[in-house]
């Protein structure tokens, strides 16, 4: 049981770090896809398609097993953070892009009529409104991300899933161990689900 809790800590660490990287990547890529330069849009599109088009586990294996071939050796944790961050960043960039596009043109035009600079309009008019639209879908991606961290056990990261398997191999108490693992993951993810639902309700009621 304490061993399992150690795994939980690793899972949470991985989730937090990967989520931060994903958030940063999503913003960079989301904005880059709105760029007026076709090259920037093109490169970002390629990044997004590659990470969305290939399987997450394949990406983990590729970074973990193939990159050493090029002299780049990353720990399982580093691999997990990097791949999960880039992968979810690619998915979430679409959320960023579409939320910004969802703000009515009149808002930008009102900013121009008040002689605001483009960056001021983005920072103080568009983004605060787009953020509210982004929050629920980004929250859903965060839940998916928590669940996806289990995959990193397959490249030997000692996370919750991995520790569960280890304990099972030693104790042979398969039913208890795997049930417990499922329940712990549920306890990690479900409060977030509930929080997002509340947020969504409040947002659609126009409060906040």
């Amino acid at each position: 049981m304490p061993f399992l809790l150690k795994g939980v800590v690793v899972t949470i660490e991985l989730t937090v770090m990967a989520a931060i990287l994903a958030f940063i990547m999503a913003f960079i890529a989301g904005f880059a896809r709105l760029s007026k330069f076709a090259i920037v849009r093109g490169i970002t599109q390629i990044y997004v398609e590659i990470f969305r088009g290939t399987s997450l586990l394949v990406q983990l294996f590729w970074v973990y097993f193939v990159l050493p071939f090029f002299g780049i050796e990353l720990s399982a944790m580093m691999t997990g953070v990097l791949v999960l961050g880039l992968n979810y960043g690619a998915y979430a960039s679409e959320v960023i892009r579409s939320s910004i596009l969802a703000i009515p043109k009149g808002q930008t035009e009102a900013g121009i009529a008040l002689n605001m600079s483009p960056s001021l309009i983005m920072k103080r008019i568009i983004l605060p409104q787009a953020m509210l639209i982004m929050l629920p879908p980004l929250g859903n991606y965060l839940i998916e991300l928590i669940k996806s961290t289990a995959l990193v056990s397959l490249i030997t990261l000692h996370d919750l899933m991995f520790c569960g398997t280890m304990i099972n191999n030693v104790t042979m108490r398969t039913i208890e161990v795997y049930s417990l693992v499922l329940i712990i993951y549920f306890l990690l993810a479900y409060p977030l689900t509930l929080a997002i639902r509340r947020l969504e309700k409040r947002l659609s009621a126009g409060r906040l």
């Binding site: 995959l151 397959l154 039913i175 693992v181 689900t193």
Partner: peptide
């Protein structure tokens, strides 16, 4: 709710080993 809040991998292990 439960299935959506837990990892597919953990579910697969559960089905295959439990």
């Amino acid at each position: 709710e439960f299935v959506r809040s837990t990892p597919l991998l953990a579910q697969l292990f559960f089905i295959f080993y439990v």
